[in-house]
Amino acid sequence: MSHLITADLAVRFTPQARIIAAILAVAFMAMILELIRQHKLQERYSVIWFIAGIGMLVGAAFPGILELLARVMGVRDVGIALFSIVLLVLLALALSFSVIISRQAEQITRLAQEDAIQRARVDAEADALRRDDEIGSNGDAAEGALEPEEERLEG
């Protein structure tokens, strides 16, 4: 049984495939570094991608680990085990993005609210000042300032 799996592995992961996987992993991590350098990716969100890249590299260097994982998972086909793991990791990443988006949406909402409250305060202070002016100038106020009072009487 075990020599069967080994034979299977040899078929699936030829040296050529392993070299390509390793090159891709290195290129992937180089791309992440470049994104950070260009300030397009924040360091705190890059960690998870480096872990993914290192995982790829390890898988390419030691395909025996994949075999072990497949056996632990109870999956006979190492290829299916690999795809399952990758799929689960991507699912977890997508979910973590949803969490991050939710947190940022909350922060944006609060920022918008703070801004709106500040503007309303400015409005309220301007209105209070205008009213003081009306009283101070003994009813000789500008037409614009009188408007709200007139509206109030209509209501």
């Binding site: 909402t109 918008a112 609210q113 309303a120 305060r121 408007e147």
Partner: peptide, 16 residues
């Protein structure tokens, strides 16, 4: 009408 307005810079939803 002399009413202060808290203007949200973009639509945020009724609850916000």
């Amino acid at each position: 009408l002399g009413v202060p307005v808290a203007l949200l810079p973009f639509n945020q939803g009724v609850g916000a």
